[in-house]
């Protein structure tokens, strides 16, 4: 086999590899979609974030509008500080409510933004004041049992 045949075959091989990498990037992965490096930053504080992770989607009315950038714990208030990046084309009112929800019963957790009626908009670095923590099943069950117990002891009197 002569040299040009090697060149051709190896060229095809490398092209195929690049094609596969492109397929990985655009069709399988999410390189083309919003990767959180642009847009403006917002901050929200929660009592409990449940299972929220960094890079989790930020949705409004079900549409992905950004991603969670980082999650930290504030050492004085013991609140979770979630910073997120929102695509520049979306704007949210000052009284927007941020809540942590779960997609489906067992799905991953995401941050939901629900717009209020305030005419002014959140700007870069602003803080979302109204937040609603993640719904934690154990706490809810505990609360339910406690209420039930209180109820039954109340009726027996």
């Amino acid at each position: 086999m002569n040299r040009s045949k090697f060149d051709l075959a190896v060229g095809v091989f490398v092209a195929l590899g690049m094609l596969a990498l492109g397929f990985m990037a655009l069709r399988v992965g999410n390189l083309a979609s919003f990767d959180g490096s642009e847009g403006y930053r917002l901050e929200a504080r929660f009592d409990n974030i449940g299972g929220l992770k960094s890079r989790a989607p930020v949705k409004s009315a079900g549409v992905v509008v950004g991603r969670v950038e980082s999650i930290k714990l504030d050492n004085t208030t013991y609140e979770a500080v979630v910073s997120l990046r929102v695509k520049p084309e979306y704007r949210f009112s000052n009284d927007t409510i941020a809540s942590i929800l779960t997609s489906g019963l067992l799905g991953e957790q995401y941050l939901s933004l629900d717009v209020g009626g305030d005419p002014s908009y959140l700007s870069d670095g602003a803080r979302i004041v109204k937040t609603q923590s993640a719904f934690v099943l154990e706490k809810l069950i505990g609360q339910f049992l406690f209420n039930k117990a209180a109820e039954s002891s109340g009726t027996s009197k």
Partner: peptide
């Protein structure tokens, strides 16, 4: 679903 969970930098 695939695109939502596969991150190019982290996974690929």
């Amino acid at each position: 679903q695939m695109q939502a969970s596969v991150d190019f930098r982290v996974d690929v």
